[in-house]
């Protein structure tokens, strides 16, 4: 659905995006992470045919972002950094306006608006002026606008940044629904927990370049080492040494815990549990030590800084 090859953008002498190549498939959610000014917004603007790449190319839903800009824009729904709402309009008028711009007939405009206002819990406020909306409501309305024409591709910049937890959950659920209805979603966010929860893959951008990419588990594996599992025993009864499969490297943490790494958790973890129980260890729990995406992110950014310093 989205393919970029060596996508680059410079403003005079400033290189905002430098050779980004990525592919996002149908029904896939990609999270673009990176510090402010890393080039996420510029990338999104190129993918929506607002800015022309200075090098490289990109296609969205099979259309070239330079040569077929109009088709690209018809296929894409964008939640922009600035929500771009008109304070003196009502929500229904606002959605109707954008529906007309996207060429929807009046019946479809009305149906889509009703569906999205209901989905985002804005029906009660639909006749209020947008200027009276709270930040979260404004963000939900902007998201409704992005989804109004049922686009194949959604590019969402900080989709839940101003929302209360309940609204944020609503939005996250709707993004999951988009994925299951085969839509392609790119999220730019600083909310790492959200990215981890929603994204199939993550790309970390630093100074216009992708410095790390992959699924969350793969990135964790690569950047903060293999998963570490902890077995907890009941009431200090873990003092003796367990006899575990040779492929599993383990060490004692204290009387109640051992931790181990496993080359293939799906195969070896059940085996480890089985052996421990068989050897009389009163196992209370077996779990993976939490490794946050934040750690992955910081590692990737630090590595990129080191790389640039080395260069």
């Amino acid at each position: 659905m989205i393919i970029t090859e060596d996508l680059s953008k410079s403003f005079d002498t400033f290189v905002a995006v430098d050779g980004i190549s990525l592919t996002v498939g149908k029904g896939e959610v990609l999270a673009l992470l990176g510090p402010n000014g890393a080039g996420k917004t510029t990338t999104v603007r190129m993918l929506t045919s607002i800015l022309k790449p200075t090098r490289g190319r990109a296609t969205v839903a099979g259309f070239d972002v330079v040569k077929q800009a109009s088709q690209v824009r018809s296929m894409v729904g964008v939640l922009t950094e600035h929500h771009g709402l008109y304070n003196r309009m009502r929500a229904t008028e606002y959605l109707d306006f954008f529906g007309q711009i996207y060429g929807l007939d009046s019946r479809r405009r009305m149906e889509s608006a009703e569906r999205l206002l209901t989905l985002f819990d804005l029906m009660d406020a639909k006749e209020r002026r947008i200027g009276e909306y709270s930040k979260g409501m404004r963000q939900k309305l902007a998201l409704a606008r992005a989804m109004l024409h049922d686009p194949q591709v959604l590019l969402l910049d900080e989709p839940t940044s101003a929302m209360d937890p309940a609204s944020a959950r609503l939005v996250r659920d709707s993004i999951r629904n988009l994925r299951s209805s085969e839509r392609t979603v790119v999220i730019c966010t600083h909310n790492l927990a959200e990215a981890e929860e929603l994204a199939d893959r993550i790309a970390i951008i630093r100074q216009g370049r992708i410095v790390a990419r992959g699924s969350v588990p793969a990135l964790k594996e690569r950047l903060v080492g293999p998963a570490v599992y902890v077995a907890e025993f009941y009431n200090g009864q873990g003092e003796k040494s367990p006899d575990l499969p040779g492929e599993v490297a383990w060490e004692r943490m204290d009387r109640n815990h051992i931790r181990f790494t496993s080359p293939d958790p799906a195969t070896f973890n059940p085996l480890v549990l089985e052996r421990l129980l068989a050897q009389g260890f009163p196992v209370v729990s077996l779990e993976e030590l939490p490794r946050s995406l934040e750690e992955v992110y910081l590692q990737a950014v630090l590595a990129a800084d080191g790389e640039s310093l080395d260069a």
Binding site: T48, I50, S70, R73, S74, V76, V78, T80, E81, H82, H83, G84, L85, Y86, F98, I101, Y102, G103, A142, R145
Partner: peptide, 13 residues
């Protein structure tokens, strides 16, 4: 106000 950006992402010429 940034309200032009959603218009620019639309199919409007």
């Amino acid at each position: 106000r940034g309200s032009i950006e959603p218009l620019l992402t639309s199919p409007l010429k």
